[in-house]
Design a protein around this nucleic acid. Structure first.
Lengths: 141, 141
DNA sequence: TTACCTCTTTAGAATTACTCCAAACTATTG
DNA sequence: CAATAGTTTGGAGTAATTCTAAAGAGGTAA
């Protein structure tokens, strides 16, 4: 509808937010760019706050959490639970799984198409499968 | 203050603790019995504290956590990370995976022999696989 | 038994990660 | 530009877990 080219880096992110039904506010735009303009990554709330403040973006912790959860709901992010007491948010929302390096808080993706998970048992009655997560826990040699 | 028939149920648990190199203290024995004398189960620290106090065992929260972690190190328990901000400890340490019912804090085991996880990619260099966790997240219908 | 040393336990303070809240703010619509 | 509904914010609040330092309890040797 509008082929304007005022702010090249903003446009794509703006459309993603609009498509998700999220009002494109200053903070959401800035966080979206930090998250999505750097390829696949795994971020904690704490880290994102740090990056934002380093980038000169003023955001509160509450907004970081709100935004992370809203993006997750919208399918723009995926929450990864591997470490007790700390949530990671993954900008890669394609079908994949994770390597988790114990101790070092490092996460690495691997494509789900490479592996096969076969013969999954039937889920408990009254439930249906929402997602299958494979976490390969590795240790440093 | 001590019930008489204390020998039979204590013996096996006592040996497990000794074998793990853990001094069999009053609290460790009591917690071990609560944990292992009731088949496979998934317990949070909070829950275990509740059970202990209901059973008339006086233990502090610090000891609950210490014990849970020591048992885990000793291979008597397995920590399951599925829920952000809450750790479960599984008394089933055989090769198996989990169904996690979203929202309801319910965990169910399923045997790993029933499924196949094939063609796992090579782990990041400098690391080796310690464990593979498969978490099947299910939702209530 | 007793002494003794080390390992354990404990209450409570501290920390961490996150959520909640009411007030100030801002994008959008008319 | 004003109305209003969605957003952001600092700070208080909460839940889970860890820390601390002092008291307590197993194991062992004599």
């Amino acid at each position: 509808m509008k082929p304007e080219s005022a702010t090249p880096p903003f446009a794509p992110v703006l459309d993603r937010l609009r498509a998700a039904g999220l009002r494109p506010t200053r903070q959401r735009l800035a966080l979206a760019r930090l998250l999505f303009d750097a390829g696949d990554r795994h971020v904690t709330a704490e880290q994102l706050l740090g990056e934002a403040s380093r980038a000169g973006v003023r955001v509160s912790m509450a907004t970081i959490y709100n935004t992370l959860h809203q993006f997750t709901h919208a399918g723009l992010l995926r929450e990864v639970v591997v470490d007790p007491g700390r949530s990671y948010f993954d900008t890669n929302v394609s079908d994949h799984h994770h390597f988790f390096v114990e101790g070092s808080a490092e996460l690495h993706d691997f494509d789900a198409r490479g592996i096969e998970v076969k013969h999954l048992p039937v889920p408990p009655s009254g439930t249906h499968i929402a997602r299958v997560d494979v976490i390969v826990r590795v240790k440093k040699n």
